[in-house]
Design a protein around this nucleic acid. Structure first.
Lengths: 252, 252
DNA sequence: CGACGCTTTGACACAACTCAACAACCGTGG
DNA sequence: CCACGGTTGTTGAGTTGTGTCAAAGCGTCG
């Protein structure tokens, strides 16, 4: 394991994640590495893709956090999801020439841009890899559904608990969470926009979670103290009945 | 126009819809017809696919309404979407072997089951058609996002208004809505589960919409009285900047 | 040092929920 | 034909969860 210089040589979170879904060949891994060979530094707050503009490219988020959201006429916004390292964003706009929301970097970040034709080549030449990528993306979209369930039917505290549990699982996939503890560079305003709450109420909910000794969110660090109780509270299902390894699900 | 015998010969809503996205050849249309050649009658309330069980097939809803939802431990449920005639459901489970929610027929319905391999064949042999289908599905998924925005950030009345407008647009695509008027076999309990409200509050909201002369929902019929004001209230965006006709977006 | 971004708290207002009751409408069966 | 239960819609009264407003505490950074 090499992890010495962190100039541009960044740990390949995407590969880490995909390997839990599928067995990847050396060639697959090489392809992944090539896709990410020309990383782009993105400053915090910068927009990656704008609603409507089908940028016709996807991005692999290599380092840092982002968010995708929709704005409302009254200025409010709803955050759809927080891409974390190893996530692909805008894939749908590549496959189908529609881009539906805006992506913004929440922290300074490093991304790789993958043009649509290049991505199509990958799908053709590395079906295993392509299937794994699609699978991971599909999993993310399922999370949007779960998010909808949260916002529609769970109370503020349940919703918040659920959110942090889900985030934990996603980060664990790329090795960014350990023992129910992870870095989370979100502030309470951003959380509020994701959870469909006001920032002030987020604060109150966080206090409750802290007082109940379930979870602490302090100094950009989330610590889960009592996983069992937290899952019970959130109604958090089977940690994602994420089935079997992909064999040949691709376009065979 | 033939519309005499309604035994099995049902109008092809799917074809109607897809033709607004893409130019379909005679062969494409024949393929569509063949896919729907063996309609299945489904009784109201019957489950089509259950969460988890990757049925490994998709369904084309030919007649009737359905809903897909998730249940919560406490018995509540969140409805994700209401498939209407011409919609494909469970497509993702075909492509990726995951099924994420439960589908139930809300009315007596007619569906066609398309086994996964068959569907893959279609994608290979009729790329135009496949692209159109994927496009339509992708559009539906974008609506889930919009739904999330509604539930997260819009007030009850805005949310409800938005819902009926969106539904109108979807039904118009298959010719089931005319002049802001359409059949809608949903009761207030079902609406509530979709909108993230209580049934009683849905009732109150409907009353407000009625009193404000914006929209009436009576005897399973929705009538939009003042489209402009309703859109303004809902924050309903450009009727769906649904771009251009598909040319060759498929797996070429 | 002050300015700024973020968090925390309190007091109050209001939107939406709950409970309870009743009205309308339906098909069914006596 | 009417009585009946079941489903759906309607309304009111009271409760509660969450939002709003306002202000103060606290780090960090220039």
């Amino acid at each position: 394991m090499k992890k010495s210089d962190n100039k541009l040589q960044v740990e390949d979170f995407l590969a880490t994640k995909l390997r839990t879904f599928a067995r990847l060949s050396e060639r697959d891994l090489a392809c992944l590495a090539e896709l990410q060979a020309k990383p782009i530094q993105v400053k915090r707050g910068k927009e990656l893709a704008h609603e409507g503009q089908a940028g016709h490219a996807a991005y692999i988020l290599q380092r840092g956090w982002a968010c995708s959201f929709k704005l409302l006429p009254d200025g409010g916004r709803q955050i759809i999801t927080f891409p974390v390292p190893g996530d692909c964003v805008g894939l749908r706009s590549v496959l189908l020439r529609t881009s539906d929301h805006t992506f913004t970097a929440l922290t300074d970040a490093v991304v790789s841009r993958v043009e649509a034709p290049k991505m199509m080549d990958v799908f053709n030449e590395f079906p295993q890899l392509g299937a794994a990528i699609l699978w991971a993306t599909s999993r993310d979209e399922a999370m949007v559904v779960e998010h909808l369930v949260s916002v529609g039917r769970r109370s503020a505290i349940e919703r918040t608990a659920h959110f942090f549990l889900e985030l934990r699982d996603r980060l664990q996939l790329v090795g960014l969470a350990m023992n129910g503890r992870y870095q989370c560079p979100l502030n309470q305003y951003v959380l509020a926009d994701a959870l469909g709450l006001s920032a002030i109420h987020v604060n109150r909910v966080l206090r409750q979670l802290r007082e109940r000794q379930l979870l602490t969110f302090h100094q950009q660090t989330v610590t889960i103290h009592d996983q069992m109780k937290l899952k019970a509270l959130a109604g958090y299902d089977c940690p994602d009945a994420m089935p079997v390894v992909i064999r040949d699900a691709a376009t065979d």
